[in-house]
């Protein structure tokens, strides 16, 4: 590895209490994000992808992280005090969510919210902050920023609100932007615009992007590397083009096959995955995907396979790869041989 990663998530466990006892929504998740890189965490509902991102922002309350480590530039975030986490969010780390309307305060203008964010990061006059706010709105492509800076969130469309969220995220010049389903609520033409904005922002500021999404197509056009999650586990990771072209894990393969494309034959059934993602409380024994897996063997129900390192930078959790070296739980991409 040329340089140490900006973010390193190691063997993260996130536990939730339930009436039936604690369950792990995220179980042993590891991945890294390097400076300026885009890493996508993709999965269906119940995969634990959003829980992971909230946990590493310290937004779940550290009590819920039951094991593991989150290093940001070598600083441990698990167990860090709320004050330190608050400092980091908005400076080193920023985030945008699926629904911008619930992240923006409906009672304040877009300008007020940007000014507040700017002045929270560093001391500056109200007037200077106002000018910077207009500049940021222009940068994120909001039409007519001098006028829109006085608009209330409800006066903007969903796409414009998400642009404002990106502007607020940029106020602290973060090294890492975490975007959790940033375009899921948007129409496809607007989605294309927001993804383009994120790419531009990344190019111009060198921001690293951790993209949480259920949408493989968004992954395909945005990310450098992809981490595929299923039922709280990482089941495959690797460079996006390679994983999409030749997925090694049966779940990734099945997930890709079940996406309708313009080339899907209309006169044949869609390839579908039987059943549904188990809830953390009902995670099956052995490999968590085995009840739905077309390639399941007997042992898949008995023991959970480790994450095997395959080609450089690729790993997959499946007994089909038995004999391959196990991927290191710490550094995604590196492999080491188990004695």
């Amino acid at each position: 590895m040329p340089s140490p990663p900006l973010l390193e998530v190691k063997d993260l466990y996130v536990r939730f209490p339930t009436p039936a006892g604690p369950v792990n929504a995220v179980a042993g998740v590891s991945f890294t994000v390097s400076a300026g890189e885009t890493v996508a965490v993709v999965g269906e509902s119940g995969s634990g992808k959003s829980v992971s991102s909230l946990a590493l922002l310290g937004l779940l309350g550290s009590g819920n992280i039951s094991a593991g480590s989150v290093l940001l530039r070598d600083e441990e975030l698990v167990g860090a005090g709320p004050e330190r986490l608050r400092q980091l969010r908005g400076s080193e780390l920023a985030m945008i969510f699926q629904n911008p309307m619930s992240s923006l305060d409906p009672l304040f203008t877009v300008g007020d919210q940007l000014v507040e964010a700017l002045r929270a990061h560093r001391p500056m006059s109200r007037r200077a902050a106002r000018a910077r706010a207009v500049e940021l709105l222009r940068e994120v492509g909001l039409p007519d920023p001098e006028r829109r800076v006085r608009a209330y969130p409800h006066e903007l469309s969903g796409g414009q609100q998400q642009r404002v969220m990106v502007a607020i995220a940029l106020t602290g010049e973060p090294a890492l932007l975490i975007a959790d389903e940033p375009t899921t609520a948007l129409d496809v033409t607007v989605e294309a615009q927001i993804l383009e904005l994120l790419r531009t922002m990344q190019r111009e500021h060198g921001t690293a992007l951790l993209l949480i999404t259920h949408d493989m197509a968004v992954v395909a056009e945005t990310a450098d590397r992809v981490v595929v999650m299923y039922a709280g586990r990482v089941v495959e990771h690797g460079p996006v083009a390679e994983v999409l072209r030749s997925p090694r894990n049966p779940y990734t393969r099945a997930l890709i096959d079940s996406i309708p494309t313009p080339a899907t034959p209309r006169d044949r059934p869609m390839p579908a995955i039987a059943g549904s993602v188990p809830t953390p409380a009902e995670a099956p024994s052995g490999c968590r995907f085995h009840p739905r897996c077309p390639s399941a063997l007997e042992r898949c129900s008995e023991a959970e396979p480790p994450l095997y390192g395959l080609e450089p930078g690729r790993a997959s959790r499946c007994w089909l790869h038995e004999g391959a070296p196990q991927a290191s739980p710490t550094t995604a991409g590196e492999v080491h041989h188990v004695a």
């Binding site: 197509a217 968004v218 056009e221 083009a241 072209r245 890709i256 996406i259």
Partner: peptide
């Protein structure tokens, strides 16, 4: 505007 999703052709970024 549809994301071009053709994994078998994904040699660069869609």
């Amino acid at each position: 505007a549809l994301p071009e999703f053709a994994p078998e052709r994904a040699d660069g970024r869609a």
